[in-house]
Design a protein around this nucleic acid. Structure first.
Lengths: 211, 211
DNA sequence: AGCTGTTTCAAACGAGTGTTTTAATCATCT
DNA sequence: AGATGATTAAAACACTCGTTTGAAACAGCT
């Protein structure tokens, strides 16, 4: 196969290593070694390691968020057209499903999913801030939609439960490439599609829990 | 106040910095500087940075797991005495509440909670393996109890939902010292006690979701 | 061909890392 | 007091880190 150009090779390698080892635990030499590219190429093409991380995240998250935004808005518009509040399940589906469907979109995509799954709990601001900035508009949309779907919940409670939802979701995203508690004596983990369906059922029930 | 001995000062400082900045992003010089202790003291007392991490985790998690184990077994025994299956809510309470009550146990305890909250999603095996090894017996107990409480769920489904539970829980533990999505335009986060109650309600509903 | 701007390359830089070493200090015992 | 073992101290070790440098190789052009 004709090998991709330098920038792409760097992005692919960085994505894989950032996801597997974390940002600070990944070295420029590791990245350029895996990409079979000169060490200086990263600083030449991206400027710095931080800027490379930003590029890695943005490359994937911009189209992903676009899909999420479209799906969310479709749900909201259909509900408005029907003169009914949107259903919590549909909103969550619009938010969650694209994230994991995205994983099938290419060989490196699953690494990326693990990377952003861990982003929220990253200690380092570099990763976290970059990710939050990208996902905040979508999150606001989801929040507003769920507010209509579950009007009996106060803002505080809804936000709290949404945090739990994000926790369960990001945990699954991390665990996908590396099962967190897959040990002898425990059953095999579910397939991806079933896992997503289970997650949606789980957080739906959680969000709709009685106050 | 009489300052604690060297080992304790190192443990306290390391706990704080590991929790705030992550393991790899914390330097020995940072730890010994905060502890106002000589650089070589860590290697003298603990052997290595890795061994220090293990000591930091074990110091807190051993008594914590003891409490959890006792509470879990009390719930299980009471249920058996009554000839009824234990309730999922009580089992989850026994597992979750001590973790967060633990935070009030001392000035450094909340740092520790954030540290182990992040442990499951840590890319590094050093942290993850240590934590999993410690928590596995408790986890098995919880799993067995929930299996009685929710006999209609298959092993696979239960484990999957328990993973989501761990995700929501660890997310809250990370977020406690640093609210993840606390931004202008969003409501204030809940107090700790209410937060725990909300988490338990959330995961209870999630676990009991219809198949 | 020769020139021009872009990309690659090997090498080095300075700063920071965990760890080790060796000597000095302290506490505790006979 | 003096000797013994535990602890602390300052300094250096070998190594890796992200970044920069300046020359070489390559591209596309007139």
């Amino acid at each position: 196969m004709p090998q991709a150009d330098t920038k792409t090779r760097i992005l692919d390698a960085a994505e894989k290593l950032f996801a597997r080892d974390g940002f600070h635990n990944t070295s420029m030499r590791g990245i350029t070694g895996l990409a079979r590219v000169n060490l200086a190429a990263v600083n030449y093409h991206f400027g710095s390691k931080d800027a490379l991380l930003l590029a890695v995240i943005e490359r994937r998250i911009v189209p992903l968020n676009q899909i999420r935004q479209e799906k969310l808005q479709t749900v909201l518009e259909k509900a408005q057209a029907a003169g009914q509040p949107p259903s919590a399940r549909q909103l969550l589906q619009a938010f969650i499903e694209p994230t994991l469907a995205f994983r099938s979109s290419g060989p490196g995509a699953e690494d990326f999913i693990a990377l952003i799954g861990r982003a929220l709990s990253e200690p380092d601001e570099t990763v976290r801030a970059c990710f939050i900035q990208q996902v905040l508009p979508i999150f606001k949309l989801l929040f507003a939609g769920l507010h209509q779907a579950l009007p009996e919940l106060s803002d505080q409670i809804l936000l709290t439960r949404l945090q739990f939802t994000m926790g369960a979701m990001s945990h699954m995203m991390c665990a996908s490439t590396r099962p967190v508690l897959h040990l002898p004596g425990f059953p095999e983990p579910l397939q991806e599609t079933e896992m997503v369906a289970e997650l949606i059922s789980f957080v739906c029930s959680g969000l709709e829990a009685p106050c």
